[in-house]
C-alpha cells in the first residue's frame, strides 16, 4: 500500500515537473517574440559585402605573365591559361585566360599566390544564369568590374553586423554618420603618420647635435 502511494506521489511529481518545464519552454518562446528581426529584404535591400569578401574573381590581362601558378595552387586546376612562347622576346604571350565559376569554390588560392597581383577577388556574388556554360568567364568577362551596392540608386545598402555602431543590432534606420565600433583603419594610419612626422623632426635635431 505504501509502495503504491509512493508510486502515485512520484507520478504526480513527474507530472508537475513536466508542466513546469513546458511552462519554462513557453516563456522562452514568448521572450523571443520581443527580439526584433534583423532581416534584410534581399532584392530590395542588400548587405554591403565586407572588404575581404571572396566574390567573383577579377583578372587583369596585361599584368599576367602566364606563369600558371594559379593553376597549380587551384584545388582542381581550374584556370585555363592559353599562352604561346615568343622566340623573339623569349617571353610567353598570353592568348586567353578563363575561369569557370560554375566549378570554382572561391577559395582565393589563385589570388593569394599570383606573383603579379593580376588576380583579385571582387564583391560580386550574383552569378545566377540560365545556362551553366555562361558561368565560364573568359578574360574579357573576368576583366569587368562589379557594380557596387552602395552606388545602386534602387537598393538601400545595409551594413553587416560587424560594421554597425556599438549596441546596434538592426542595419535599418541608423542615424546618419554613425561609425562601426572601434577605430577605422584610415584613422589609425593617419595617427601613425602624424606620430612619425612628429618624431622625424626630433630625430633630425638629434642628428644635428651629434
Amino acid at each position: 500500500m505504501l509502495n503504491f502511494l509512493k508510486q502515485v506521489g512520484d507520478y504526480a511529481k513527474e507530472t508537475a515537473q513536466a508542466a513546469k518545464f513546458i511552462g519554462q519552454g513557453l516563456s522562452v518562446t514568448f521572450d523571443h517574440m520581443k527580439r526584433r528581426p534583423v532581416t534584410v529584404q534581399y532584392p530590395y535591400e542588400k548587405v554591403i559585402p565586407s572588404e575581404r569578401y571572396r566574390g567573383r574573381i577579377h583578372f587583369e590581362f596585361d599584368k599576367c605573365i602566364a606563369c600558371e601558378v594559379c593553376v597549380r595552387v587551384c584545388p582542381i586546376n581550374l584556370p585555363v591559361v592559353d599562352w604561346e612562347f615568343n622566340r623573339e622576346t623569349k617571353k610567353k604571350t598570353l592568348n586567353h585566360y578563363s575561369i569557370d565559376f560554375g566549378v570554382c569554390i572561391f577559395c582565393g588560392n589563385c589570388v593569394e599566390y599570383c606573383p603579379t597581383n593580376c588576380l583579385s577577388m571582387t564583391e560580386e556574388y550574383e552569378l545566377a544564369s540560365y545556362d551553366r556554360h555562361n558561368l565560364n568567364y573568359d578574360n574579357v568577362a573576368l576583366g569587368r568590374l562589379p557594380y557596387k551596392v552602395t552606388e545602386d540608386p534602387m537598393v538601400p545598402p545595409m551594413r553587416e553586423f560587424a560594421y554597425l555602431p556599438k549596441g546596434a543590432m538592426d542595419p535599418h534606420d541608423l542615424p546618419k554618420g554613425t561609425q562601426r565600433a572601434g577605430r577605422l583603419p584610415k584613422d589609425i594610419l593617419a595617427e601613425l603618420e602624424a606620430e612619425a612626422a612628429k618624431k622625424a623632426p626630433a630625430e633630425a635635431v638629434e642628428e644635428a647635435s651629434k
Binding site: 518562446t29 523571443h32 517574440m33 527580439r35 526584433r36 528581426p37 534583423v38 532581416t39 529584404q41
Partner: peptide, 13 residues
C-alpha cells in the same frame, strides 16, 4: 506572423 516573431523573422509582408 507569430511563428515569424518567435523565430525573429518578419513573416508575410
Amino acid at each position: 506572423k507569430i511563428s515569424a516573431a518567435a523565430q525573429q523573422r518578419i513573416g508575410p509582408e
